[in-house]
Amino acid sequence: MAPNWKRAIIVGASGGIGEQIARKLASGGCRVALVGRREDKLRQIAVDINGVSLNLALPFPSDVRDFDAPAAKVEECVRALGGLDLVVYSAGVMPRIGPTEYETAKDRLIVETNLIGAMAWLNPVAKRFERAGGGTIVGIGSVSGDRGRRGNPAYSASKAGLECYLESLRNRLGRRGVSVVTVKPGPVETEMTRELGRLPGMIPAGRAADLILKAARKFGKTAYIPGRWWLASKIMLSIPSRIFRRLPL
């Protein structure tokens, strides 16, 4: 039976896919806790969603790199929402990395935001859902995580790590009725990708949000967004390493 989400936490809701997911959920009557670093942006989105009379969106400013915060923050969100049915971890960064750049500080930022932050937020959520015997966790991976691309090593590694972490959660929690979904979007028009320019197959963030929620409702394990990236990924995975390294990816 498709889940009827009434209360959701969106981590990384101050822009991009997270913001769009929050808006889509709220338009269906779901109460959303907006978690993000930029407090002013969160408040603006909440005001936008709530209008004059609604109280669907609640801002919870928090930096995902503050790894001690989530345990208490999740409880705070749950209390404010009156429960929890869905958590979407959509926080992510992809700073521009030059072809000959090896900058540990940037790599650390990427891994901490995309992977360690996800673990810090999803661990207390997993514990709660395991006890509750239900719930949905959605993590935003990337097609970049399928292969080690030369363009942005840390980003690919962080997304591959996230996918593996989510698969482990799924294997742990599946028998308890918890659905863990990894979505792997192709290029999506967000602030993160703005400086990369128009990429082939790029879709608007609103469309990506629709497809992600649709995939999550189907209890899918891993979903490519949009679906054609499944084929592209299979082709990419079948390319021998010695050829893959020559491709401009």
């Binding site: 409880e75 705070e76 749950v78 209390r79 207390p124 709660r128 006890r131 509750a132 015997g133």
Partner: peptide
């Protein structure tokens, strides 16, 4: 440490 905001998570159950 801050006092807990909720009872222990071990008591959580689906009813």
């Amino acid at each position: 440490p801050d006092p807990p905001s909720r009872p222990p998570a071990e008591l959580l159950e689906r009813v």
